[in-house]
Design a protein around this nucleic acid. Structure first.
Lengths: 184, 184
DNA sequence: CGAGGTGATGAGACCGTGTCTCATCAACGT
DNA sequence: ACGTTGATGAGACACGGTCTCATCACCTCG
């Protein structure tokens, strides 16, 4: 979408906060009113399409084999999610991260997206019979794995350290192992 | 603060989204301009004073004995935080929760506050020498313990099931035990 | 007691976000 | 050619949030 590209570019040039919706629309050859027909608010132009991530994670978790442990199910969710990412999104990641770094408004929206992701995973796990607070916990690990795995995938853009799914699964495994170091 | 009371009352009556800053200020006998001299934005009138929570948690974690495990340190942070809560905040909790339930705007701000909390705890743990990703993980457990412990404390308002610190520590212990149920 | 300083407030202009309504225009099938 | 549909533009509007200037109470110092 031209609007997304315009928003990312302008945010890189002047910062997200200093960029107005009118500017974004103008650079895309449109007007403010049209912008809001495509996105419910200004922040969403950079975060659009994340409800789908929740759905994919939940689907993957639900489709995991019956005997799978909670973290196995989460891992299956990660695979399903990772499969939906395109190479284009690998370049978008760092640009978004840079914009978010400079704007509390975007950090806020990002935090909400993460909460929604965790909530979706928790629900999917509970539907598998995982009790609380294990479901909550596994969901939280899942979110951390998604974020860290995605970050590493974006970083290692050239050198192929494996696909996104591998990065996410590796991150989850590390988190799993770290639980034993938490204490008595 | 009269402004806080006015904001909570109006949010309960009409919902937070349908409440304007001018209304809040008017009910408090003030004006819009004065409202923004006390709070940086509309959301903050309901979430004010949470930077202090981060500081208290970090202080408690930093002051934990040298041999303490990461979760022990978190537990010490919970104690320090819990000690700062007043009975008045026990009644405020459910009212805030109700307002948040009806407003994505407030959910967003709440999510950001949680992220900040986790970030502060993670930093304090890293300063104790806890490596990643254990520090991140312990911080996340800490946030869950704070939220769940606080919720239970508010719920059991009349019947004294123990203080806030006990509720938070119990929640943390449950989370700790749940880690073994996550899978291989 | 009066002059000057300080801090909190009010008044109101101003810009950006987000919503809404009405008009325009191209594409489409009939 | 006609009416329909969908995307867009134009502009009014309410609200959030910032800023400047004026007012007023209070306090201190001479």
């Amino acid at each position: 979408m031209r609007l997304v590209r315009a928003a990312v570019d302008l945010s890189a040039e002047q910062g997200y906060d200093a960029t107005t919706v009118a500017q974004i629309a103008e650079r895309a050859g449109l007007t403010k009113a049209t912008f809001f027909r495509h996105f419910p608010d200004k922040r969403e132009v950079l975060f659009a399409g994340q409800e789908e991530h929740s759905a994919l994670l939940a689907a993957g978790i639900g489709a995991a084999p019956d005997g799978a442990s909670p973290l196995d199910a989460v891992s299956a969710g990660l695979d399903t999610l990772a499969a939906s990412f395109t190479p284009e999104q690998r370049e978008f990641g760092p640009r978004l991260a840079e914009a978010v770094r400079g704007s509390t408004e975007l950090q806020e929206r990002g935090a909400l997206k993460d909460v929604r992701l965790a909530s979706a995973m928790g629900t999917a796990l509970r539907e598998r019979g995982v009790p609380e607070p294990a479901a909550h916990l596994a969901a939280e690990l899942g979110v951390l794995a998604v974020k860290q795995g995605y970050a590493r995938w974006c970083d290692g853009a050239g050198d192929d350290d494996g696909g996104l799914a591998e990065q996410m699964r590796a991150a989850l495994a590390e988190l799993r192992e770290a639980t034993v170091a938490l204490g008595p």
